[in-house]
Design a protein around this nucleic acid. Structure first.
Lengths: 219, 219
DNA sequence: ATAAATTTTTAGACTTGTCTAATATTTTTC
DNA sequence: GAAAAATATTAGACAAGTCTAAAAATTTAT
């Protein structure tokens, strides 16, 4: 039975590893987890003792199979609860992360599986992230960053990389939501901003924005 | 912002106080909370410093107004989650307590209130206990222990005092559920057991059982 | 390829909530 | 109303998870 802190470390290692698939550094973990590097080192030793991670001093860390399974269970719970909050309890997609951070640590396999059934086995959370099934498996979507599209290309919004309330709120304000179709009208080489068209209007998006919106390209 | 341990102490003080309305003893708390008496003393000092309880050495403890409000919020959440688990997630009434013990500590007023709405403002949890509203108010039911009924009297099951899985399972096995009407046929003065009739059958219940079933008497 | 900068680890300390053992207070009993 | 029993508190210790400051290892730059 893992502590809340241990589960949070495993989740953070999972996410960092899947961003740039190499061993995760102490500093990256400390910045994500908002702790000091020395605390991270302490915890990595403990997780290594429990065979949840593979850790060699000064070499970074990665999850063991057991660690990955555990991380995926926590992520599954996090995303299912997010769906619940949005679909059943009238939450907006920018309000759910913080609460799901708490709910993801509730221990009850039956609870998780019944919640999954109650929500009708959702495949994605409100931010477009895939929900692992009971066995930790999930579909990898065919998607690119909006910033990768060329002028004239179009696609459907299918997710966000940055799911901070600030970004999600900004998208709400621009009426950009998952499912909307965007067409790239211009790309400004000076600042990498883009002019995109949707819903009969056009909008300029900063590089910051286009590098955080996932698109499923048309064709 | 209170810790999980602090919330559990407040809840335990609340429950013990409402059983036999006098100041709650250190030993009673330690037995409910499964800790040592010395740990209880330590925590009571801390809660007194935070003005959540009124505590004088060797004199027992009771909740301050602020402490009672806090305890009622935790109890409200516990009971709402129990309703959710039974009504929406197919749990039996003997399975929900343990999970609700975890869920009751989730911090989000909006979550609690939306859950309340989603469940259509339930008045009682699956064990018949009242659910405090947003302001901490709840209806006190007109009920007595089954053991208090005389021969020939009848009433409807409206709650259980002991909500341990063992007792709830026993009731399930006897097909006794909330809402059932019971009629007292015999009372045995030797061991205080009772013969009760319901659903066209008769059953002998031990004193242990009759002292843990709440009945709303007919007339 | 060495010096400087960065990253990581170690050592020792603090907080929360718990424990055991010893002591103090209250309650019960005779 | 004293002695015995029960209850409660204090003192000191420990584990988990964190911190700061100092030391060690690695990476980068010249």
């Amino acid at each position: 039975m893992l502590s809340l802190a241990e589960e949070n470390y495993l989740k953070a290692i999972y996410h960092l590893h899947h961003e740039n698939s190499k061993a995760v550094s102490t500093n990256d973990l400390s910045s994500i987890l908002e702790t000091k590097a020395s605390s991270v080192t302490d915890m990595l030793k403990k997780l290594a003792d429990k065979n949840l991670v593979v850790y060699k001093k000064y070499q970074g860390v990665k999850l063991s199979d057991r660690g990955e399974t555990t991380a995926l269970k926590v992520i599954r719970k996090h995303r299912l609860w997010e769906v619940f909050l949005v679909e059943k309890l009238n939450f907006n997609w920018d309000e759910v992360h913080e609460i799901a951070e708490q709910l993801e640590h509730i221990q009850s396999e039956k609870l998780t599986d019944e919640l999954d059934r109650f929500l009708d086995y959702p495949k994605r959370d409100p931010h477009g992230d895939p929900i692992p099934n009971k066995d930790g498996q999930f579909a990898v979507a065919n998607k690119t960053m909006l910033s990768e599209l060329e002028i004239g290309e179009s696609g459907v919004c299918v997710g966000v990389k940055d799911s901070s309330p600030a970004f999600l709120n900004y998208l709400d304000k621009q009426a950009i939501a998952l499912g909307k179709t965007l067409i790239v009208k211009e790309k400004e080489s000076f600042d990498q901003s883009m002019l995109v068209a949707y819903d009969d209007k056009a909008l300029r998006l900063s590089e910051q924005a286009t590098q955080n919106l996932y698109i499923k390209p048309n064709s």
